[in-house]
Write a protein that binds this DNA or RNA. Structure first.
Lengths: 103, 103
DNA sequence: CGGACATATGCCCTTCGAGCTATATTGCCG
DNA sequence: CGGCAATATAGCTCGAAGGGCATATGTCCG
């Protein structure tokens, strides 16, 4: 998991993931939607691939990329012990709102 | 949320958060547990503070730091749309296991 | 008020990574 | 087989960021 956070730290890579979340896409499709040169996109895809966050399917010259969510589950697991902390805060917030509404 | 991932990308900072998750701690306590010089720890704490991930309480010369989980909730929200993807995978895995057990 | 303790800031060095352009690779089609 | 289309790799530059040491700031205590 160590490096998954580092991989997700880059906004372009998160944007790529968000695009791939909608549907499987070839590289050129991503290039059209991002304001990045094609080699830059390919480099990001390589990073995402090596982190296990995307998978590729070859179709003639095209490479179709799709999300491979495994590492995201590990992030989720890392978050787990913190989750109760903000849920507690939200609970407190809700109680305050209830009090106000109760007036 | 933009930069929260970048802040979490550093392993030292995640370690600090994990230590603070157990309990509120003064800086020196963190320095003892990390193999980092005190100024380095202070610098990380500044980054965490500016990202809203920790809060400080002053007590004489000591500064007690604690986790402030708000930004983590935003990470959790970003993950949300992906969650169903790996849950689907897990479901499929469970079904396979059920099949095997059914034999 | 002087000195010790606890933490923060400034400065420097070095490494890393994101972006680009140019070029290599791979596969299809005429 | 030649050439185009789609993607990947190489090489480069530049700025950001982490680490350390030295020092400043702030707080208590005698």
């Amino acid at each position: 998991m160590a490096s998954t956070f580092a991989v997700l730290a880059d906004p372009s890579r998160r944007e790529i993931l968000d695009l791939l979340r909608e549907r499987e896409r070839p590289v050129g499709d991503l290039v059209d939607r991002l304001t990045l040169a094609q080699p830059t996109v390919s480099k990001h895809l390589k990073v995402l691939r090596e982190a296990g966050l995307v998978e590729v399917r070859t179709d003639a010259q095209k490479r179709w990329y799709r999300v491979s969510p495994g590492p995201l589950a590990e992030i989720d697991a890392w978050l787990a012990p913190y989750r109760r902390m903000w849920e507690k805060s939200l609970d407190a917030l809700e109680r305050r709102l209830d009090e106000i509404e109760g007036d």
